[in-house]
Simulated scan of single mutants.
Amino acid sequence: MSISSRSEQALLSHDENEVVKTTHHPAIMDMTPDDLRANRPRLRQMYEKERTLAWQKRREVRGKAEPRGGSFPGTAERSLSRKQVFAGALQRLNKEISRLDRLAARSATAAGAHRALALRKAGEAAKHPAPGKSARSGMKAKASTRGGTKVNPAKVGRVSQATKNAQAARDNRT
């Protein structure tokens, strides 16, 4: 389930909110691919920190680990929700980066095709068509295009063996 922007603001500090805000729709379209790639490590670091805090809190609640450090930061209470916020921001960022990469690849392919077409049009056309086959030495036999019939090897001898079996059965009756 997605989290509203208002809920994100309530969960995050001001600095974190500024980073996450750039991954939402109007702001993400204005960013360059280099800016998007520069934000990715920071968002990933925030996500991993929240994942670690949530993991540690879960272990403490289950009684499998001692509390770590003197105290957790004030935002540690909602670490699972904060982790979801950062995960959503990372997804939006990665989706936009891959969209821009596909767009760049498509335009590069189109540019290459246009360049190839221009080179082909600029090239010299053949003055005469190829001569093809000629009738100088008379008619030649054409190779057959039909394939021979192929009998399944397992069926070879089936009819003659059936005749032998029938004859043997008749001989044994008398």
Rank of each mutant, 00 (worst) to 15 (best):
M1Y: 11
S4M: 06
S4P: 06
L11M: 02
E16I: 04
N17V: 10
V20H: 08
T23Y: 09
H25D: 15
I28C: 03
I28Y: 02
T32K: 10
P33V: 09
D35V: 11
L36H: 02
R40Y: 12
R40I: 01
R42S: 11
E50I: 03
L53S: 05
K57C: 00
R62E: 11
R62H: 00
G63P: 00
P67C: 01
R68K: 14
S71R: 15
S71Y: 09
G74N: 01
R78Y: 04
K83R: 14
K83Q: 13
Q84V: 00
A87K: 11
A89V: 04
L90V: 05
Q91M: 14
L93H: 04
N94I: 04
N94H: 02
A105R: 07
A105L: 06
A111Q: 07
G112R: 07
R115D: 06
A118I: 01
K121G: 03
G123C: 04
G123I: 00
A126G: 01
H128Y: 14
G132S: 02
G132H: 01
K142M: 03
A143D: 09
R146E: 05
G148C: 06
K150D: 05
V151L: 07
N152F: 07
A154D: 15
R158M: 10
S160E: 06
A162Q: 07
A162T: 07
N165A: 15
T174V: 13
